[in-house]
Design a protein around this nucleic acid. Sequence first.
DNA 1: CGAGTCATTGATCTGTCTCAATATTAGTGG
DNA 2: CCACTAATATTGAGACAGATCAATGACTCG
Lengths: 237, 237
Amino acid sequence: MKQDVFKAACSTCSLNEICMPIGFSSADMEKLDTLVSSRRRIQQGEVLFTTGESFVSLYVIRSGFFKTSNSLSDGREQVTGFQMAGELIGLDGIVSERHNCIATALEDSEVCALNFSDLEEASRELPALQQHIHKIMSREIVRENGILMLLGNLTAEERLAVFLLNLTQRLKARGFSESELELRMTRTEIGSYLGLTINTISRLFSKFKAAGILDVKMRSVKILNHTQLKSIYSEKL
Amino acid sequence: MKQDVFKAACSTCSLNEICMPIGFSSADMEKLDTLVSSRRRIQQGEVLFTTGESFVSLYVIRSGFFKTSNSLSDGREQVTGFQMAGELIGLDGIVSERHNCIATALEDSEVCALNFSDLEEASRELPALQQHIHKIMSREIVRENGILMLLGNLTAEERLAVFLLNLTQRLKARGFSESELELRMTRTEIGSYLGLTINTISRLFSKFKAAGILDVKMRSVKILNHTQLKSIYSEKL
DNA sequence: CGAGTCATTGATCTGTCTCAATATTAGTGG
DNA sequence: CCACTAATATTGAGACAGATCAATGACTCG
């Protein structure tokens, strides 16, 4: 099962998160179609936008996988999120009208650009769209709250468990297996996201493997014991 | 200099962040005044809203000081932010229509409740308001990105330095001294926010004091050497 | 096949936590 | 105004999770 073979139909595609909030008439849908100003293909490793660039559009991932990150002047980076098909990137650019992070494709991807001014205009006429935008932004705030909790309170083991469960849950919502996944990111990137080092991540994978919780072969991960993985952190959350 | 003696006039008051984005006619301003459905006084230690409560309004802090936090089932809490006059709380409630954190007053405070449905309705007619709301939400996302960076990459010393500089900067923007401040939160709360323990915070204050950077007497902090405080982290950010 | 990137694993080190004792402050009622 | 109590803060000693350093192994791609 691969993550890069999504269909293009709107009803099943990545856009549905933003295009299809409940309560949309087909007339509304037509209006929405005009918002998608362009589609872009982004190759693995390519940067969709970067810090400081002027902000024009939000991007919905149509297919593929991205990371968002910030970098410190000493070269280190902080990964702030991983996004998959159907998810939106670029919200952090609104406040200053400049992008505030780096969005990098972790596999060959396709995105739809949504001109933000147009989106604002359309949302004035479509309350359902307006509400949807607010909810998406609020959801991002809540998501980041969750990571704060993770970085502030959880042990390395717990963090990796939460990370894997979150990934598989999102994949499941997209119709993929919840027990097998192909990691799109390096150990270093996972580590940065979780506030840990590559060594610790690697050791934890080995540990989980030894405990019979996972089967890990490089980027391919199989969850053998879902219950046990959950129990690693579930007493706390 | 105290933080609880803000004037009530709209032009200088806490509301100006949301009420006064650039480009507002006085007719627009009138419409905005109707949005403020109620004012509430919250005593120190009281909870303004808590996780799970149904979300109706955003709150602008008119005077006082709040913390927002989440709690884990084992009793520990993660402080996700400290808010002062003019700042907005409650954005995390939009997505699920339930509040997603606990907002606690750290001193006697006064807030203005903004009914969110009314706000959405008004923003359909006032593009400047609409844009302002989007920017406020985006700013919150960027703010949290900054904390992720802090928790993921900085040492304890650097975290406390960033924390103090951020606080004084915000106080300065409100007309207060940038070198003297009265902490409204406990060491434990600072620790939770920065992903550290009370012991570490206390030790750091002592260390900064010994180094001549700060003068600390319980909750009252004086910054003696701003440059040195900045230099603790500035090479990285 | 070779070079480069990425991952694993061991040995050691260190920053921060934990535990515990003590000091300071704030609040309460007599 | 003072004693009593609870909450908060400081500080030391020791422990430990995760970092760092370094060597090796595995995979990828031209």
